[in-house]
């Protein structure tokens, strides 16, 4: 089942399916190792619907995607 990364539940594991577009932000995510197919864990969300923290491999990053770069993910069981 695919969904937007922001709709994931805390603690769930998912895989990047695609980025809605290629821009500086999504390019940077790929360069940091978050390429499509990468499995990651949705760790937490900052208060007041702020950025989200995810971890993959040995990296932990906080991101707040804006409306123009939607990240589609697929939950892993």
């Amino acid at each position: 089942m695919t969904l937007n990364i922001l709709d994931l539940k805390k603690g769930s594991t998912a895989k990047i399916v695609r980025y809605s577009r290629e821009n500086a932000f999504t390019k940077r995510l790929c360069e940091m190792g978050l390429v499509p197919g990468t499995q990651f864990t949705f760790v937490r969300r900052a208060p007041l619907h702020g950025p989200i923290e995810i971890c993959f491999g040995q990296s932990r990053i906080a991101i707040r995607p804006c409306a123009d770069s939607e990240i589609t993910v697929e939950t892993c069981s």
């Binding site: 932000f25 950025p51 932990r60 990053i61 906080a62 707040r64």
Partner: peptide, 11 residues
């Protein structure tokens, strides 16, 4: 437009 935010959490 609001820019995205991206920051790495070092250990």
């Amino acid at each position: 437009e609001p820019m995205h935010f991206l920051i790495e959490f070092p250990p």
